[in-house]
Design a protein around this nucleic acid. Structure first.
Lengths: 337, 337
DNA sequence: GACAGTGGCTTATCCGGTTCAGTGCACACG
DNA sequence: CGTGTGCACTGAACCGGATAAGCCACTGTC
């Protein structure tokens, strides 16, 4: 089956290719009558502009890129990325931008992918997640002048747009809540320590615990997987004065922690309170349902996509704070007994 | 920053654009010495062929498409798609094909997306998941002559390649195992009934239960979400002669079922045995860990991508059976007491 | 020594859009 | 009636590769 081109439309409408192009793109230069006729023909023969030809003649590729740098075994179960992606799609789809995905192993590979995409003119911008301190990707993107939105700060992103949520405020709220319930020994199982938002949370956690005069406030670093979540939880629970509450940096580790508590015969929330982060449906799935720091990941993704599209359109964009993270109390938190 | 083109390379090497193109693509027509010189220059200036130009001159777009037709609230937590995607990436990345993703709401929208992609020449082929009976997408893809690999059969895919796993065999194995443990009343909570592989499983389940003379063998349809998994489980467990074992069509519903059992004060596996499907890390995350019908989803995805690339290369492809699904017994199954 | 064959390269064309510099025409105006 | 203006549209160049056709120098053959 042959794909229709603007030349086909031009022939049938008895006008030139140029006129068709103007008509289809809503440019001035054709009469209203001609435009309608051309649009009708395009509709009739099911015309879609060849994206390659369009991209080649200077216009947009009408695609944005997302690289994901996490091991495959985490990706499947981690609800974060899929939530983000469905948020992107909501915005991109509406403006018929495509989303190009690439899973990589290291930040260095991400840089390579950016360079390649840029050279190939494959995409008009990228969404950068899992930002680290002195992230190698930032200067490259600036040098390439590739529109980008950084998720996971706040951090020093130079001229790149960024969108971030107030993780420090969120963890402070969670700790205050636990203290109000009567907890004195609160621990935390964190995500990958290199990531900027992990550092933000770690610092804020230490500060609020100190300011409230808590007995103990350790953070054990983990990597978002269930295995490390279990391991960290076991380490915390076998100690002499074990914590009465644990805050986890994502919900997968929180669920794993819950299983460890059950396996050790501890009751949740009686012996141990658990607070998860992200609040995907996973949290309401288990018994007891997990208290969580909720945020609408899809909405976060949608907002990031909107900012990126703005940036691609040449609008000035800066820092944007996403909707507030809030504590959703469920059955996994209670006063310690 | 200006992107280097083959014209830049040609100028620096003192040859024509044509020669550079031959050299870069490993075509005959240039001497080994010239080829090396050209490749060295390309390397040095960081050349990447403009994908639009390449696609325009008849070559491939070097991208494949994947549409996902599931509500956003399922996507985040369902490990299946991310597993599949990371499998695709492993193969596609190696041949520097890009993966273009689109989340849609209905199969009709998927058809539209396929038509648009085809018209735009944006992709060289598509991966089709969640196939239904008389799926509307099959005839469209055949008509467009768009290379495709169908996942989720076996079904009637006409000339399209397909890859499928022996779900009937798997569920038979699970039922036989439960019967061997001493179970007589086995129930099942299925995925979306429209999907072909759900029907395959439902039929096989009914058959094996009948052939083994089981007292009861109901399948309650659900939709892969935790909520419906809980609901279906509650319906099963409040009845008079409740089942002693339940098989779930994915692991999210199985985890939800486990939570319902715990909430109702039933012991797992003492009062109720649970078998999950897919065996993502989620199954080993909860307590007790879930017995599951395991398959390597990433490997499945990788195999699908390989078949698709073959099909794009014009090779003949047909039906392929994926690696066998096998039962992984864990703590959630035991003889009924 | 004429001629075919071949390797190595150049030239020109094409893909399907966008865009800019015209062109022809109608109409207004002095 | 000549001129200016604006509109609707045409024609052609251009984006950056792939590729068919053509050209030249050299080799081998009879």
């Amino acid at each position: 089956m042959k794909r229709p081109t603007i030349a086909d439309i031009a022939r049938r409408a008895g006008v030139s290719k140029g006129a068709v192009s103007y008509a289809l793109n809503g440019q001035p230069g054709v009469s209203e009558a001609t435009r309608k006729r051309i649009l009708a023909i395009a509709q009739e023969i099911g015309f879609n502009a060849n994206s390659a030809a369009r991209a080649l003649s200077g216009a947009r590729a009408r695609a944005v890129g997302l690289t994901i740098c996490r091991p495959a075994r985490i990706l499947g179960i981690e609800p974060w990325f899929m939530g983000l992606i469905s948020g992107f799609e909501a915005e991109l789809g509406a403006r018929s931008y495509a989303l190009t995905l690439q899973v990589v192993a290291t930040p260095e590979q991400e840089v390579e992918v950016y360079r390649r995409w840029w050279g190939e003119r494959r995409i008009d911008g990228v969404i950068v997640t899992d930002i680290r301190e002195n992230d190698v990707r930032i200067p490259v993107l600036q040098q390439l002048q590739l529109p980008a939105v950084v998720i996971g700060g706040p951090g020093d992103t130079g001229s790149l747009a960024q969108i971030w949520s107030d993780d420090a405020g969120a963890i402070t709220e969670a700790v205050r809540y636990l203290v109000a319930l009567g907890h004195h020994r609160i621990a935390r199982v964190s995500g990958v320590p290199d990531l900027l938002h992990t550092q933000v949370r770690t610092t804020a956690f230490a500060e609020v615990c100190a300011s409230l005069g808590l007995d103990s406030a350790i953070t054990i670093p983990a990597d978002y997987t269930g295995e490390e979540g279990s391991r960290a939880t076991r380490r915390l629970l076998i100690g002499g004065d074990r914590p009465t509450a644990i805050i986890y940096d994502n919900d997968v580790m929180a669920v794993a922690g819950l299983a460890v508590a059950q396996e050790m015969g501890l009751s949740v929330p009686g012996d141990l309170s658990i607070v998860a982060w992200d609040d995907s449906p996973l949290c309401s799935l288990v018994h007891p349902p997990l208290t969580a720091l909720s945020r609408d990941i899809s909405a976060y993704g949608a907002q990031a996509a909107r900012e990126l599209l703005k940036s691609i359109d040449g609008d000035q964009v800066g820092d944007v704070e996403a909707a507030r993270v809030h504590l959703t109390p469920r059955g996994s938190t209670a006063p310690p007994r």
